[in-house]
Design a protein around this nucleic acid. Structure first.
Lengths: 365, 365
DNA sequence: GTCGTTGCTGGTAGCGCTGTCAACGTTCCT
DNA sequence: AGGAACGTTGACAGCGCTACCAGCAACGAC
C-alpha cells in the first residue's frame, strides 16, 4: 500500500485530494487558481482541505514551480524612524497577499547592498524592493537582468530599473528654503548628518536655492557622516552658532536634528523663531507638539512603502501599472518655528489641542 | 545523456560534484559539515563551488531535509521605537549565521498572534522569537508542542515555554517611583498609553509603590488604549493637571509620553523639575539632550534582541544555554527633570556636551 | 589472521508539489 | 450530423537536495 501520512503527521495535498475524490493536481489547482475548477470540485476540495487542516508546504511549492513567493526588501537602516514607517507600509500591504517579506539591512553600504542582492536573486524572489537610485554598476546590472519586478523607493530619478516610487529630495529642500525666504530669512544654515545620497540631494537643493538668491555661503553648512540623533543636532548647531553667530534660520536634514537644534537654542536662551527659525525634514509626529511647534517637510513614508508593495504585487501577478514611476510629493508644513516674528505675536502658550499646523505648501504632482 | 544545466542556467550541486570528481552527496556534506570530508575532497569541492559560483537552492534543501533555516519573529508593533531596537539586535545577531528572519506583526492582538503562530509553525521554523508572556492558551499549547527552540522576549515571568529574556517591568516601575520618593516627591501621577501587558505591569509596579508609601490615589492615574505618541503625552498630561493641580511628579510609561509632558509643561509655563518632576521609560536617545534633560529607566532593548537571537541560534545548533531565563535588568538614569530643586541651582544652560547623566540606580541581576 | 571499529564515500529513494501535455466531455457552429 | 472550440481533468515526470544505509579501506586489539 502507498504511503499515508508522513511520520511528521503533516497533511499533504494528496490526502486532501483523496478525501475530496479528485486527483492531486486538481487539488493543487484549487489553491492556485480556484476559478479553473468546476464549482462542485471546488467546494469538495475546499471542505476537504478545511477538514484536514491542510497547510501547503511552501518549500515543495517553490521547488516544483521554480519560483518563491518572497518579496526581498533592501533598506539601509532599521533604526531610522523613516524606514520603520516605510516598512510598516510594506508589511501592511503584503499582509493578506500570499507573499512574504524578506528584509535585509544594507547599513548604508552599496557594497553590502550588492552582496545582499546577489544572495536574494539566487533564491529567485517574486519581487524586489530596493532603496534609492545609487546602486553600484554591478548591482544595477544584476537588477536589470533579474526576471522579477523591482521597485526602487524613497526617491525618484532618471533611468528607473523597473518601477520607482518616491519624491524629489532636491525639490523638497528647495521648497523648505523658499519658505524660509518668504518668511524673511536670509542667513540660512544647513545641518546634516549621515549624508546618504538622499541627504546629499537635500543639501544640493539647499545650495541651489541659496545660490540663486545670491545668499550662498559655504560656512553656513555643517555636516557629518555620523548617524543622526537629537544629541547630534545639539552638537552640530553648537558648532554652527559658535562660528556664524549671525544666522537667522536653520534647515535641518531631518527632524531629529531639528529637535536637537531646538533644545540647543533653549539651552542657550535663543528665541525660536524670533532669533532663529528652524525647519526640519520628514514631519515626524513630535514636530506638531513641541514648543514651539516645528516646521517640517512632510514626506509620505508609509504610503511609499504600502504603494511600493502593492505595485510590486500587482506587477508580479502580471498587471503592470500604467504609471511605473510615481512621485508621491511632499508638503512644507508651516508651524511656529519658522513663522515671521510679528510685533506682539510671539509663540503662544496654550492648550495642547491648539497646536495646529498653520498653512502648508503642498507639492502633489 | 543525463540532464545538464537546467534551462534557468542555475548551477546545481550535481555540477559542482562532477567538477570536483565526487558524488553529489559528498558535495552536499561539504556545505553542511565540512569536517566530515577528507581534506583533499574538501578543497576540491570548495574550489569547484567557487569556480562555478554555486549557490544552494534553499527550497530543495528545506524540502529534502524537512526543516527550514528560518527564524520566526512575532512582535506587536513596527512603529514603536522599542521594537525597532530589538529588531535591530535580532537582525544583527542573525547576520552571518545561516538563518534568516521572518518577521510578523501581531498589532498587539493575541488572536492575531495565535493565527500567525499557526502559520509559522506549519512551515517548521528552525526557531521562534515571540514577544511577552501573555499568549492565549491555544498559542501556549502550540508553542509547547513545537519541536523547535523558542525565546520569549521583552519581559520575564514564571513558566517559560522554553527560553526567556527580558526584565521585570514591575520592578523597573517601582525603582522609578522609589527614585521620585527619594527626591522628595509625594503626589506622583502616572501617564500611560496603549496599555499592553508590559505597560500594565509598569502600572502595577507604580500602584504597589504608591500604596506601600500610603500615597496611592486612583485619581493620579491617566491611561488610554490609544497608541502612544508625543502629542498624546501632551493631552494626557493636560487632563491630569486640569484635575489634579497639586501633583509634583509624573511617571510616564514611555519616553514619548514624557517628552509630550515636558512640552506641555513648557507650554503652560510649569517649571520642570521645580514644580513638576518627570520620569520616562526606556531611555530613548533624545532623553539625554532635551532641556531639561529627562530622567528615564534604561532598558537594554538592542541586547534583548541580539541575545535572544544568539541564544536561539545556539539552541538550534544543539547548545542549550545553561541559563534559559535571562534577566537583562534596567537602570534608573537620573537627569535634570527629576532632580530635587535646590536653592540657586536651576537647570543650567550650557554646552551640549555638558548634557551628561548624573547618577544612576542600576539593577543588573 | 580475524574481528571489530572508525572514517569516509556513494547509491537509492524520496521530500510535496507543479509544469506540461494529452484526453475527456460538453457546447456551439456550420 | 460532423467538427471545432472550449472548459475541465488527470498522468507523468521531475524540481535540487538530503536521509538513510551500505560499502570500503585502514587500523588496532585479541
Amino acid at each position: 500500500m502507498g504511503r499515508k501520512r508522513t511520520k511528521s503527521g503533516k497533511i499533504r495535498l494528496a490526502e486532501v485530494a483523496e478525501l475530496a475524490g479528485v486527483s492531486p493536481i486538481t487539488a493543487s489547482r484549487f489553491f492556485r487558481n480556484p476559478e479553473a475548477l468546476s464549482v462542485a470540485k471546488r467546494t469538495r476540495v475546499e471542505s476537504a482541505a478545511r477538514e484536514l487542516g491542510y497547510v501547503p508546504n511552501l518549500a515543495a511549492r517553490a521547488l516544483a514551480s521554480q519560483r518563491t513567493e518572497v518579496i526581498g526588501v533592501l533598506i539601509p537602516s532599521l533604526t531610522n524612524n523613516v524606514f520603520s514607517d516605510v516598512l510598516r507600509g510594506i508589511y501592511d500591504a503584503s499582509e493578506g497577499s500570499r507573499y512574504s517579506i524578506q528584509l535585509s539591512n544594507t547599513r548604508y553600504s552599496v557594497l553590502q547592498e550588492e552582496k545582499l542582492l546577489r544572495l536574494f536573486l539566487a533564491q529567485k524572489p517574486a519581487g524586489l524592493i530596493v532603496t534609492g537610485i545609487d546602486q553600484t554598476a554591478e548591482s544595477r546590472a544584476m537588477l536589470e537582468a533579474a526576471d522579477c519586478p523591482i521597485v526602487q523607493i524613497m526617491e525618484i530619478g532618471p533611468n528607473p530599473v523597473d518601477m520607482m516610487i518616491g519624491f524629489s529630495h532636491y525639490d523638497a529642500a528647495r521648497a523648505a528654503i523658499a519658505h524660509l525666504f518668504e518668511q524673511g530669512h536670509r542667513r540660512v544654515g544647513f545641518v546634516g548628518a549621515r549624508m546618504d545620497p538622499r541627504v546629499q540631494r537635500r543639501l544640493d537643493g539647499y545650495v541651489a536655492a541659496m545660490k540663486e538668491a545670491d545668499l550662498y555661503d559655504q560656512r553656513l553648512i555643517v555636516t557629518t557622516a555620523t548617524p543622526t540623533s537629537v544629541t547630534l543636532g545639539c552638537a552640530l548647531f553648537a558648532d554652527l552658532i559658535a562660528r556664524e553667530s549671525d544666522i537667522d534660520a536653520v534647515f535641518c536634514a531631518n527632524d531629529d536634528l531639528a529637535l536637537g537644534v531646538l533644545f540647543e537654542c533653549r539651552r542657550r536662551e535663543i528665541a525660536v523663531p524670533e532669533q532663529i527659525a528652524i525647519v526640519g525634514f520628514n514631519d515626524l509626529e513630535f514636530m506638531a507638539s513641541s514648543v514651539p511647534t516645528l516646521t517640517s517637510v512632510r514626506t509620505n513614508r508609509y504610503e511609499m512603502g504600502s504603494t511600493a508593495a502593492a505595485m510590486l504585487i500587482e506587477a508580479i501577478d502580471g498587471k503592470r501599472p500604467e504609471q511605473p514611476v510615481l512621485d508621491l510629493g511632499f508638503a512644507v508644513i508651516e508651524r511656529q518655528s519658522s513663522q515671521t516674528p510679528r510685533p506682539a505675536a510671539g509663540p503662544r502658550a496654550g492648550e495642547w489641542s491648539s497646536v495646529a499646523q498653520n498653512d502648508s505648501v503642498t507639492n502633489d504632482p
